[in-house]
Simulated assay, not measured.
Amino acid sequence: MGTGSKAKQLKGFKHSKPGILFGIGGSAFGAFGIVKDVRKAREEGDTLKLVNAAVAALALVTSTALLVRELRRLGDDDILLG
């Protein structure tokens, strides 16, 4: 089994229901970092850091929405659903 087939398997996992759920879980952990950044920016009164955290939060929301949309599109077509 070559490395090419491993990469193909991982790419397939990324587009499966468990892979998408794993991505959403990773986004949830990213939210903790963003909340921490927002608190720190507010404490320091640093507007630029606050804007940076807000942009990161917007990106997180957008990527999570894309993952949820992909999860809905999978429907019954996913072979891993059983």
Rank of each mutant, 00 (worst) to 15 (best):
A28D: 15
G82A: 13
R42N: 15
L66R: 05
S5D: 15
I79M: 08
G25D: 13
G33A: 14
D76E: 12
F22H: 02
T47V: 12
H15R: 11
S27D: 12
G45N: 06
M1R: 04
E70D: 15
S16N: 03
R72G: 06
A56V: 00
K6V: 09
T3M: 09
L10R: 08
K8W: 11
K8C: 11
F22Y: 07
R39K: 04
L71D: 02
A57E: 05
K6P: 02
K40W: 01
D37A: 08
V68F: 09
S27E: 14
F29N: 09
G23M: 08
L21P: 00
V55H: 06
G75A: 00
S63P: 06
R69S: 13
R73M: 11
S27C: 15
S27P: 01
D37M: 04
V51H: 07
I24M: 05
V61A: 15
A65Y: 07
G2T: 04
V51Y: 03
G23Q: 06
D77R: 10
V55D: 02
I34R: 15
S63R: 03
E70K: 11
K11S: 11
L60W: 01
F29T: 08
E70M: 05
V51F: 06
P18S: 06
S63M: 07
K40R: 14
V38T: 04
G45V: 09
R73A: 05
T3D: 12
E70N: 08
K8Y: 07
G23K: 04
K8E: 10
D78K: 00
K11V: 05
M1A: 02
K8H: 09
A57R: 01
V68N: 08
K40A: 11
V61T: 09
A56S: 10
T3S: 04
A59F: 14
L66M: 06
D78G: 00
G75N: 00
K6G: 03
S5R: 14
R69F: 14
E44H: 03
G19V: 02
K11I: 09
T64A: 15
H15S: 09
F13Q: 08
A41M: 13
R73S: 11
G33R: 13
D78T: 01
V51M: 02
G23L: 06
L67V: 04
F29Q: 07
A65L: 09
A65C: 06
G12D: 11
N52P: 02
Q9A: 10
E43T: 05
D78H: 01
G33I: 08
V35H: 09
R39F: 13
L74I: 11
V61M: 13
R42C: 14
L67I: 01
A57I: 01
G26V: 03
S5G: 02
G45I: 14
A59E: 11
V61H: 02
A65E: 03
A7K: 12
F22K: 06
L21S: 03
V35P: 07
R72K: 13
F32Q: 13
R73W: 03
S5P: 06
A54N: 07
V55C: 07
A56D: 00
G75Y: 00
K8N: 12
K14P: 02
A53R: 01
F29R: 07
F32W: 09
T47A: 15
L74K: 08
